[in-house]
Design a protein around this nucleic acid. Structure first.
Length: 882
RNA sequence: GCCCGAGUGGCGGAAUGGUAGACGCAGCGGAUUCAAAAUCCGCCGCCGCAAGGCAUGUCGGUUCGAAUCCGACCUCGGGCACCA
């Protein structure tokens, strides 16, 4: 073979690995284990560059750890339940099961050529009855352990399609298909009691040292521990409610220090008081009904215009002789706190906007020490650590930081029996019921005599029926008579199966544990989870920073309580890495009505001249030679400006089908090979940031791999060389080993790649002996092998390496080869670089200073003045200050 | 709206308190070639003939020294509990 030829070599080495069983994970008590996991994909049917990047990162770590002597577990599976399968069923009449398994087969076929070091023998899909049956067993154990409860929750209800909508199916408050105004509807639902673990999930975050700080912060804020005060505001006129007379409104506040500034009470439209009053007040009922049409997301609530309805009731201020009007506010939710708040406009922007709108009074509870201005358009909300001057503070605080004042206020109210200090969490219980077909059936039965009864474990899995139709909206399980009707597991009488299925987040909350024993007839097996758990390195998108990761952490605890995981695995992911997206430019033209029309990258011709990039529709460019006999592609821009259609280039955006800025990994692998795709996604951009896919970047990656191949093939071509240069090459080699190792260990793959580029330049330019070059290229192959495993095997084999490079131990940098004898120091004059000197590494500070002051540029700059100060930082810099 | 990030040449980025722009792309010049592709060598932040000046989203601060630390702002991205 005389050239780099990935099309033939890549399948060859993949076969070699398969035959040798190189990547099968084995429990090997003689070796330390390492578990690498990438967030498993949803089987959409097509892999995209984001997948390639995600799995390449995991593969680099897996292959590297393997070389370092670890017994590695690197599995792959499919997050296979979810709405797209049902949508496909509705749109194309496909069966969700067939559609999903076909997609899995397609995606696996696209993924295999990339050469990932995966143990495919452990593959499973969450829609396999073998998997979800064990999930049902977990559910039953958790139900019996008191980790699951049932209660009412609000869902998006489409009154036309008579179905529950996901948040993404609600567009501008309307159902995506019916276009009907969506309503809030209460349903009884199953919940995981995750809020019982709020404090534990919060404090345990401190132990997750190898998680990104930002993810821990996001989770911490999400859990939202707060200390506040619950105070009763007595109604001046008690009102008859559904469950007796309501004579006060309890309000929870994290800012009880500002009670003097309270100027109104706002209650939720679902508050018992609101429900009691609306019966006799049609106008209020209409307002409340309107509120109940709002979306269920926090975002919808927070961004909606703040509106209120005055109830006419008043409540007494608990410590001052005045009354506050009671309003219904669309921004107060019954699920939070007590469903009622006191409004303090001066120190809360939302309350201030509300007060200005409805002409409610605004009074300062405190001022800044420097000024005592009344609040205008903006609420006064200084950091809680800044001292402020209080006015008529209930606990008698005059000057203090807000934090101190809050603590003292809570104490004072408790001492005087006027309120209750409380710790609350923002985290709510995890509603897991979904009114959908394509999910894991909730294994319970509703019996008229026995109530809610869990299915017997021997009857698991409760399998989804296959004879379903999606011609009508709603959940087909709900109208499937033979599936729905069943025997009560307790009394044996005719009963009804639960027709709700589980949230797909449940599926992904324990798959990491299942990979340790994917075929077991129990959810997990002790000796396997003992050996393999935890996941040592977890890799996935930042979009999962909160929900998926928090739910998984909860599940690990629940599985420990129910005996499915050891105590040591209570935090399932030792280290977490969140990678960025793969982006691409978007190409648009406008149609006759001015709307954007998107074009695929391959439909666009980019013409680049003098630093300007312009794009044209390729079809027109291809037509040109016929139209113009003297067509010169170099001069295409000028010609195209006259006859071509200009295409606008919109810089990097997340790849999406609708914007047509997608690059298909399959076509990249076909034209350049898997190693090029892998090398490209690892180079240039740091892995936590987004990477922009560019055609020229992919070509550059391909060219470099060809160059590396040639350097190896031509080790002897330039003659025996000169052994006098060997030491320099070996120094460069050891420096490269150190840099690549540090790059992989520190998830800075782009820096590892840069070091390999530099090393290739060094090998190319050296006059060292052929033997030294051979050694350099063998090491180069090893260092490249995690990123470009096929090429590495090829070079290794070509240069006579023993066995597979995948089995060779990772090279170690010799520390004595990394030290330099002399060092070049920049010399600054008043902080600006003027010159530099090269001195022996260990030169004493005084001598360095003397040399620096004797430097021509320094003498010139001093103009005869004496330096005021000379700063010498050994090994780094000299700064002369006058 | 709230929470969390990110902003450095024409482009991707490097430098985490000490020479801003490593390495790569694009571009420019040269070698090789009948020619082209490929390959190889060199140049390459901006202004300036030069000396020098200006430059890390914007404005201010700390420091002998700031891309890096602090404060305010701007823009873009992620999440907001039924998308996965």
């Amino acid at each position: 073979m005389s050239r780099y030829d990935p099309a033939t070599t890549e399948p060859k080495w993949q076969d070699a690995w398969d035959k040798a069983g190189t990547f099968l994970a084995r429990r090997d008590p003689a070796k330390p284990k390492y578990y690498v996991l990438e967030m498993f994909p949803y089987p959409s049917g097509r892999i995209h560059m984001g997948h390639v990047r995600n799995y390449t990162m995991g593969d680099v770590v897996a292959r590297y750890k393997r070389s370092c002597g670890f017994s590695v577990l690197h599995p792959m599976g499919w997050d296979a339940f979810g709405m797209p399968a049902e949508n496909a069923a509705m749109e194309k009449g496909a069966n969700p099961r067939d559609w999903t398994y076909q997609n899995i087969a397609d995606m696996k076929q696209q993924m295999k050529p990339l050469g990932f070091s995966l143990d495919w023998s452990r593959e499973f899909a969450t829609c396999d009855p073998e998997y979800y049956g064990q999930q049902q067993a977990l559910f039953i154990d958790m139900l019996k352990a008191g980790l699951i409860t049932r209660k009412a929750a609000v869902v998006n209800w489409d009154p036309v399609d008579m179905t529950v909508l996901a948040n993404e199916q609600v567009i501008d408050g309307k159902g995506w298909r019916s276009n009907a105004e969506v309503e809030r509807k209460e349903l009884t639902q199953w919940f995981f009691r995750i809020s019982d673990f709020a404090d534990e999930l919060l404090t345990a975050l401190d132990g997750l040292k190898d998680w990104p700080e930002k993810v821990r912060l996001m989770q911490s804020n999400w859990i939202g521990k707060s200390r506040g005060l619950e105070i009763d505001f007595a109604l001046t006129a008690p009102t008859a409610g559904p469950e007796g007379t309501i004579d006060s409104v309890p309000c929870y506040s994290t800012r009880p220090d500002t009670l003097h500034g309270a100027s109104f009470i706002a209650i939720s439209f679902d508050h018992p008081l609101a429900k009691a009053l609306e019966v006799s007040n049609p106008e209020m009922a209409a307002f409340n009904a309107d509120c109940r049409r709002m979306g269920t997301t926090e975002e919808a609530l927070e961004t909606a215009e703040k509106r209120g309805f005055e109830t006419g009731l008043t409540a007494r201020h608990p410590t001052e002789d005045r009354e506050l009007p009671v309003w219904i506010g669309n921004f107060v939710l019954m699920d939070y706190g007590t469903g009622a708040v006191f409004g303090c406009p001066a120190h809360d922007q939302r309350d201030l906007d509300f007060a200005r709108k409805y002409n409610l009074p605004v009074r300062n509870a405190f001022h800044m020490p420097s000024a005592s201005e009344e609040v205008g358009a903006e609420a006064l909300v200084p950091p809680k650590t800044e001292p402020v001057i209080y006015v008529n503070q209930p606990a008698g605080v005059t000057q203090a930081t807000s934090q101190e004042a809050i603590d003292r206020t809570i104490d004072w109210f408790e001492e005087n029996g006027l309120g209750r200090g409380q710790t609350r969490f923002r985290l709510r219980d995890w509603g897991l019921s979904r009114q959908r077909y394509w999910g894991c059936p909730i294994p319970v039965v509703h019996c008229d005599a026995c109530g809610v009864v869990p299915e017997k474990k021997e009857n698991l899995p409760v399998e989804l029926p296959l004879d379903v139709s999606f011609d009508k909206p709603g959940n087909p399980l709900d109208r499937h008579p033979t599936w729905r009707d069943c025997a009560c597991p307790a009394c044996g009488k005719l009963a009804k199966r639960e027709t709700d299925t589980m949230d797909t987040f449940v599926d992904s909350s324990w798959y990491y544990a299942r990979f340790t024993a994917p075929r077991a007839t129990t959810p997990t097996v002790a000796e396997d989870v003992d050996y393999w758990m935890n996941v040592d390195q977890y890799i996935g998108g930042i979009e999962h920073a909160i929900l998926h990761l928090l739910y998984s952490r909860f599940f690990a605890r629940a599985m420990q309580i129910t005996g499915h995981l050891p105590k040591a695995a209570i935090e399932p992911f030792n280290a977490l890495f969140t990678q960025g997206m793969v982006t691409h430019e978007i190409y648009t033209t406008r149609d006759e009505r001015g709307r954007a029309v998107y074009h695929l990258p391959e439909e666009v011709e980019i013409v680049e001249r003098a630093g300007n990039r312009r794009a044209y529709l390729r079809a027109e460019v291809d037509d040109l030679p016929e139209n113009m006999p003297n067509f010169d592609r170099d001069d295409a821009r000028n010609v195209l400006d006259l006859v071509g259609t200009r295409v606008d280039i919109i810089p990097s955006a997340k790849m999406s089908k609708s914007k047509k800025n997608v690059v298909d990994p399959v076509s990249i692998v076909e034209s350049f090979g898997a190693d090029t795709a892998r090398w490209f996604v690892m180079s240039d951009s740091p892995p936590e940031r987004d990477v922009e896919w560019t055609a020229s970047g992919a070509e550059a990656a391909y060219k470099f791999l060809g160059r590396a191949w040639r350097l190896a093939a031509e080790v002897d071509a330039r003659g025996p060389g000169d052994a006098a240069h060997d030491a320099d090459l070996m120094k460069a080699m050891h420096r490269t080993i150190a840099e690549v190792t540090a790059g992989i260990e520190g998830f800075a793959f782009n820096k590892a790649v840069a070091a390999l580029y530099a090393f290739a330049n060094a090998v190319q330019r050296t006059d060292a002996s052929a033997g030294a070059k051979r050694q350099a290229m063998l090491t180069m192959a090893q260092l490249m092998s995690p990123m470009t495993p096929h090429l590495a095997e090829e070079i290794w084999h070509m240069l006579g390496g023993t066995g597979l490079v995948a089995d060779a131990p990772w090279p170690k940098a010799d520390p004595t080869m990394l030290v330099e004898d002399s060092v070049t120091l920049p010399i600054q004059f008043n902080g600006r670089r003027r010159s530099e000197i090269t001195v022996p590494k260990d030169m004493p500070r005084e001598e360095v200073e003397k040399r620096a002051l004797a430097d021509d540029a320094v003498v010139r700059a001093l103009e005869g003045r004496a330096p005021k100060k000379v700063i010498v930082v050994p090994g780094r810099i000299v700064n002369v200050v006058v």
